[in-house]
Structures are given as C-alpha cells and as structure tokens.
Amino acid sequence: MKAYLSRNRWWINRTLVLPLHLLIFSIAAFAMVRLVPGDPVLARIDTSNGFSQEDYDRMAEAMGLNGSIWSQGWDFVVNLFQGDLGTSTSTSRPVWTEIMDRLPATLELIFLGLGGSVLVSLVLAFVWLQTDNRVVRRVLDGYRNLTGALPDFAVAILSIVVFFVLIPIAPAPIGRLTPGTSEPLVTGLPLLDTVLVGRFDLTAQMAAHYVLPVAVLVFIHASGIWRQLSLGIEEQVSEPPTLFKIASGATRRSVFRSILRRSAASSIVTLGNKFGALLGGVIVIEQLFGFGGVGQFALDSVRTLDFPGLQGFLIVIAGLCLVGFFLVDIANMLLDPRRRPGVRVDA
C-alpha cells in the first residue's frame, strides 16, 4: 500500500486538493457577489405604492438574505456541501437546474471550437514539417504571432458584418435554428440531439448556424495552440531522437509522429488554458449569435440582481475550469514523468 501511494502521489494529491480549491473560490464568489451595487431585495419588491419594513424583511427572508453576512455565508457553505446552489430569485427555480438546462449547449460550442482549433493546429504543423518555402513559413509564423492580439467579440462582430450584411452567405445570427423551430432534447447538446433523433434536416440547418461562430473561435484560439506546438516542433526537429530516427531510415510519417508527440506537452497546457478562456469568451459569442446558453442566465442574473443565480454560475464555471486544469496536469504527467511532483531530474 505504501509503495502504491508513493508511486501515485502525483495524481492523488491533485485530486484531494481539487475540492478545497473549489471551496475557496466558492467563498470568494459569495463575497464578490455581495459587492455588486444595488439591493436585490428592493429589486423584487413592488415599490410603486410604497412598502414597509415588514415587507422588506419578509422578502429578504424569502430570498435567504436575512440575517448578518456571516450567517448568510454559513448557510451558503452548508448548502454547498449538500450540493444545493440555492434558488434563483428571478425564476424561482433551483440554480443548479437553471444552469444545467443551458450549460450543455454552451459546452457543445466550446468543444467544437476547441476541436477545430486542435485540428487546424495539426494541419499547420503538417504543412510546416512538409515545406521549406520561406513565404509559407512566414505566413505560419505571422499567424502564431496573432495570439492574444484580437478579441473574440471584435472578430465575431466583423464576421457578422462581412458574411451576413456585406456578403450575405451566412444565416441570420438569431439562434441555432430558424425562429419557431423547436429543438429536440435528448442530451442537451443541440447539434448532437438533432442527429440522435434522426432530424438531419435540423442538423444541416443548425450546422449552418454554427459555421460562423465556430470559425471565429477557431481563428482566435488556434493561433495560441499553434504557437506552442510550432515552438516545440522547432526545438524537437534537431533533437537527437529525431536525428536518430532519420539516420535509422524511419519513414517520414514515423518521424513526424515522433516530433509531434514530443512537442505536445506545452500545447496541452495551452489547450487547458483555452478551455478556461472559452468558458468566459463564448458567453459573448452566444449573445452575438443569439444562441442563449448559460451566458444568458448569467447576464439575466446580473440584470435582476439574482445573487444565488450569479454566484451559482461563478461556482459552476470555476469548477469546470479547475477540472479542466486538473485533466491537463494529469495528461502532462502521463506524457512526461519528469513533470510529476517530487521527481528529481539530474542534469
């Protein structure tokens, strides 16, 4: 047992501290939400004919905002351990239900963007390895230098203006389907659900609405992944393992696979960072293209001073980010044992 724990301490420790990190962030989210300007109780009370202190206290108790900030915080932590994020004061439904009804659609868009970014990065890596043309390599280097230079929303707005207004080849940015068309519900992933129920006409229609937002996400985020991958490739091309494979007569495909595998570690870290960035950035994309999603619930919570809804949104997004970073750490440690905590690497 001791030997097992010693060998696997690198991932056991990360797993054990994950809930602690989420708890710390949850408490921070509770405190930050209380700093939002405005009185959520007054936002729920009809003040057109005036109101009494009793009316105010009654509404505060119904919203769970009565008592001191410390008692509210204690109740929040107790409920959190029970898996209860509270009840939305704007919809009167459990916050967890509100978020889970919308989150799968948002995650589908994120994974399409990430998947496309990885695919584009691999294609660019293949082109870079295949060609010695200076112009092509300068173009690839120029694209990787765009990392962080262009904001998602600016590119999204520009794409709508160009491909819907000036060159009307994209569908109207008013949702995933034509207004009045109902989306099938199986898994909560809209595009996948159209396939599962056999409504391929809806699949084609939804895919057409996805092309522009996914293209924006890929254009913005593939550059960062490609940047890390290309830097790794440039380093590994002249490394001894590569030279040995070439000297031993290995096929070009085998050499390319070896270079990509050894260059992947930093790209995986970037992929995890991109997942976290997309969780925040895709909210704006969803609004611009009329997709709704979990971002709409967050915006509605801010607008209506729905404290339970807003803090529940922050906690769920933080949890997803922490899990994403955790999986990135595990993948890196599996690919490169030298990255495991406690491992000493001799010079």
Rank of each mutant, 00 (worst) to 15 (best):
V237A: 00
Q236M: 08
S266K: 10
Q228A: 00
R262F: 06
L212N: 10
G232L: 04
S223R: 09
L260A: 04
A250Y: 15
R227K: 15
L260D: 06
R262E: 12
V237S: 09
F200K: 04
A222E: 15
E234K: 14
A207V: 08
S258G: 09
A264E: 02
Q236G: 01
E234A: 00
H209L: 05
L202G: 01
Q236D: 13
F244D: 00
S266E: 08
T270Y: 13
Q205A: 08
S238V: 07
P213K: 12
E239W: 06
R257T: 09
G224I: 05
S267D: 03
K245F: 15
A215T: 15
R253E: 04
I233E: 02
W226T: 10
R261D: 11
S238C: 01
S248F: 11
I225H: 01
R199K: 09
V269D: 06
H209F: 06
H221V: 00
V255R: 14
S263H: 12
I225Q: 04
H209Q: 11
G224E: 11
S266D: 14
A265C: 03
I233Q: 01
I259L: 01
L202D: 04
E235C: 05
R253W: 09
I225L: 03
V214Y: 11
D201G: 15
Q236R: 10
E234P: 03
L231C: 03
L260Q: 04
P213L: 03
Q236W: 06
D201Q: 13
V216A: 03
L229R: 09
S254I: 04
S267T: 14
I259D: 08
S238W: 13
L243N: 12
I233R: 09
